[in-house]
Simulated assay, not measured.
Amino acid sequence: MQTGVSTAGQREWESASIARIKADFNRSGDTHLIPVPLSGYPGIDVYLKDESSHPTGSLKHRLARSLFLYALANGWLREGTPVIEASSGSTAVSEAYFARLLGLPFIAVMPATTSPEKIAAIEFQGGRCHFTERARDLYGVSQQLARDTGGHFMDQFTYAERATDWRANNNIAESIFRQMAAEPHPVPDWIVCSPGTGGTATTLGRYVRYCGHPTRVLCADPEISVLFDYYRSECAGAADPSLVLEQGSRIEGIGRPRVEPSFIAGCVDAMVKVPDALSLAAMRHVSAVLGRRVGGSTGTQFVGVLLAARKMYEEGRMGSVVSILCDSGDRYTHSYYDPDWYVRQGIDIDAADAQWMRALQGDPLRGLQVAGVL
């Protein structure tokens, strides 16, 4: 992190940089809210907030913008100083975009397993990639790179929850409620998201409480992640923030091998741990319904959508559920849309698709773990 008192020239550069980011925002429209049919559950309306339409193609565009504005407002960035980030891909793509906008070098520290499409997208935006074999090493390697280069470690996993203005300022929660205003059930019963940094879940949870909405937040965690287990320990009154895993999540962009500071458990009403095979079956279903490929994190969340819809249906309630289309499936041609990848991972596509189709028709979802109040 850069330190020191700002000079007149530094303040002028900061002001010009903030103005560039604001101008870029003004050139970008809001993302669409897409209705998605869920025929097995009449009276329950489902919507996906399509964050893939951002200039950098994912939900992380909002986060990257907020992180850069936060760092500039704090006086942490200097003209010409490298920006370093620990990221599994999408955040790095978006941060590379904003670094290039400000004329700053950018280095993404990421797992060696990151998809080639994301690596190419980072490099297209002018960034470069630094790879680690273990997901849990991302943070330490990023800190060391920042020291070695005299750069600034952006640290999305610490600052995501505080960089976003959760009261307003076009955060994703405000946008969802504004776009839902003319729908049959304008106040969603549930908003379903997935935790990576935890910043989106925290923003959603804070916003609905701040506005007095009865909406609840359901977080869908992938199979290889400690966040569900941490949340469950928090619910039991014995929170264990020391949980770690050696392996990173197979669902890129969500799930973490350690508990991140930006994941605020109290902002979440319930969590579900989703087997990766089921996440990817749901991903294929959503892709077929929309007629375009979506990423794996969208599938994980859609399992949460179905879980929430089933609960509402069993209770005889009508209403709405909103979730997030995080990014395009075109970033995963070499993984989720490659049959050989499933063979290497030991995932039975046919069995997962069959289970998912039965669930759509009303069968209970199997293999899930749930914590909190659903």
Rank of each mutant, 00 (worst) to 15 (best):
V286S: 04
A265T: 12
V272K: 05
E252V: 10
G255V: 08
E252P: 05
Q301F: 02
A308P: 06
V286T: 08
P257E: 05
V303M: 03
F302S: 01
Y313G: 04
G299P: 01
G253T: 06
G255N: 12
I254R: 02
G316K: 13
E260P: 12
E314D: 15
G295M: 05
G295W: 01
Y313W: 15
V268K: 00
E260N: 14
F302D: 00
K273F: 06
G266A: 13
G304T: 07
T300E: 10
E260Y: 14
R284A: 13
V268L: 00
D276T: 11
E252F: 05
V268I: 14
I254S: 05
S297I: 10
A277Y: 03
V303E: 01
R317D: 13
R256K: 15
V294S: 00
C267M: 13
A308Q: 07
I251E: 04
A308K: 04
R293G: 03
A265E: 06
S262V: 03
R292T: 11
E315S: 15
R258T: 15
V259H: 00
T298H: 05
M271D: 01
P261G: 14
G266N: 11
A288C: 08
A309K: 08
I251Q: 07
A270I: 04
K273S: 10
V272S: 05
L306T: 04
G299M: 05
I251C: 08
M283P: 01
T298G: 01
D269M: 09
V294M: 02
P257A: 11
L290I: 11
V289C: 12
P275M: 09
R293S: 07
S287G: 14
R250N: 12
M283C: 11
R317F: 13
I264C: 07
E252L: 05
K273I: 03
Y313C: 12
R310G: 10
V272L: 07
R284D: 14
E315Y: 04
C267H: 00
V274D: 04
V294P: 00
G255M: 08
I264M: 08
G266W: 04
D276Y: 06
R256G: 11
A282Y: 01
M283W: 00
K273L: 09
G253P: 02
V294D: 02
A288Y: 07
H285Q: 11
G295D: 03
A308E: 00
